[in-house]
Design a protein around this nucleic acid. Structure first.
Lengths: 191, 191, 191, 191
DNA sequence: GATGAATGAGCGTTCATTCAT
DNA sequence: TATGAATGAACGCTCATTCAT
């Protein structure tokens, strides 16, 4: 009676996306596997063929979130400064166009505190942070930013702002853009 | 078996605090009124003598959070610059010593998106933001900060950082302190 | 703080009336002693000073119902036939003006089946039935109704109709009046 | 532990019947879905697989009651007079043998006043009434009953008696039979 | 792969009732 | 008399999960 799916990973992805969508809308507080199944059009029991538990499903959403954020674009062209600018621009645009993504991101951030299973999330964040640090380090060495900047520290600040922005993504787009610009200007030693 | 309480508001506060504690530990996701009651040592039914619904209880936690954050200190002594510094220092110390407070704060921030009943939270935030803006405005006019700074915009950036910091309060204390310092330096036009 | 009531029976009656009113509106299914207390303006706990249990309160409503129905009017003037007519007329008028009374009456009738405590209700009914029987007996002996009528049987039929009417009191006033008239005509041997 | 049922409608019927039985015994006042489930031998949660709410379950009991009353017999053989007689005989026998049925019927009748959702009940009653009316109309036209009888009015009276009888079904079987006979006699113009 | 039917545990909430004051 | 504060038991209902088919 049910449309058979050739590639099981297709159905798996559907489930992950549906889960993501519900978390974006209702938070972990409002996540019910019933609703996930209904959204995909399958029986809740069927979900257990793809994921052993609700928690396992959520775990997969973590990967999905970081993939959807497209945060790690290696081979971006341009100078480090241009790359950072592109990164922040891309982020602020995403926050405007896909605010749910950042809602889920923030939900997960909070969940890290209490759910050890979500440490995968922290690994992603560390990777991201390191990438940013390297970019800053390179930029400073190449003279794009003043050399009194501490790459690690500045990277941390940038990430703090991004995360703060993520909390209100979709609500104060203008403020987020302004703050990103401001940081860039401050980094350059300009007001 | 039960312990009678002289002042009913005492019990009310106990309930609010217990609720706060559980949200800090488990998030809204893990908040159960049975656990709140158990923490306080009363029958779950008794809770309904003090609060008509779970949501009403949560509503009271909002007030509690902002009171506990001690964010609005009117007549603080010192120059605007010193006041801002005191504000940020106090916050970073609080984040270190009372990280749960910021976990709850962030949970609530996220909840605003979906629960219209929590708009009281947004009102608190607006008040906070306006206070900060006024402080910056005064400081700039009095020459404590360069006058090319836009108070509204900078206040927004500071709050963004604070909220981002709140998400990881208790986890990266050093980074948070550094970032607060950095912002202060940047505002002063120093590196 | 509370207005003291001089005569405790006044308060008792208030409670009984409030209970009656709620049963009329919501049935036994919807009777809550909380609501009774609120209607009277007292604390639910206070009710227990007047009645030891909810059931005891209900028990008192039985008396109230029969009193309010004013079914047993002895010294009515006129012939037995006129008395019966007056009785039925009074009832149909009451059904129109005070339908809740008959809702409660019917609720109680049903409750007799399952609650032995309500046998007081059955006693009232027996009394009523006997009265009616005597009236018919007298009327037949005096030639007001044909002597082939069996008083006991006809009294039973009349009460059946009245109780059936009580079930729909306030909903089909016209039908009830017609049926009462019809029975009277039939009894008289007229069509 | 659980007994799997082949036909899901079987279980559905079991639930409806168990609900019916409990209402018959305890009234709506005493209806608990936990008891219904226990009677059927399933987990209370399972009930919600078959009926979305308690109210929906009750709704199905309405259909069940009218089906069980077998009130609408279309092509019964015999003259209208014989049909009416058969109808009343069947009813009085049912009241004797299955008094709970009429207890539930009366409970529902009362519930109509307050629960708009139960208007399905009223529709059944209207249908019944109309059927009876038609039967009387035909019988009068064909000379089985005197033509001074008003079909609508007499049908109403009969239903009133039946409903009154239903209230005491199982308690006064003899009286009920007598009253039904009496009405039939009166209708025929005999004493 | 997929589902219908089932469940144990638990949820927010209500209720009649109690009792010290 | 009256009440504020409390409670055990239960209620309608939901949830993640299971399992035979």
């Amino acid at each position: 009676m049910e449309t058979k799916i050739d590639n099981p990973s297709v159905r798996k992805n559907e489930l992950i996306e549906a889960t993501f969508e519900i978390i974006a809308r209702l938070g972990f507080e409002g996540l019910r596997i019933r609703d996930v199944a209904k959204e995909v059009g399958i029986n809740p029991a069927t979900m257990y063929y793809y994921f052993p538990t609700k928690e396992a499903l959520i775990d997969n959403v973590i990967d999905y979130v970081f993939k959807r954020m497209e945060i790690f674009i290696e081979e971006a062209p341009g100078t480090p400064k241009e790359q950072l600018h592109a990164h922040l621009t891309r982020l602020s645009r995403k926050m405007r166009d896909d605010p749910g993504l950042f809602a889920v991101y923030s939900e997960m951030q909070l969940r890290c505190r209490r759910n050890s299973a979500a440490e995968k999330f922290l690994q992603y964040e560390t990777t991201w942070s390191k990438k940013l640090e390297t970019l800053l380090y390179t930029g400073i060495r190449q003279g794009y930013w003043p050399n009194y900047l501490d790459p690690e520290q500045v990277a941390g600040t940038i990430i703090l702002i991004i995360q703060g922005a993520g909390l209100i993504a979709g609500q104060s787009t203008r403020q987020i853009e302004n703050s990103f610009n401001q940081i860039e200007r401050w980094m350059s030693g300009r007001y």
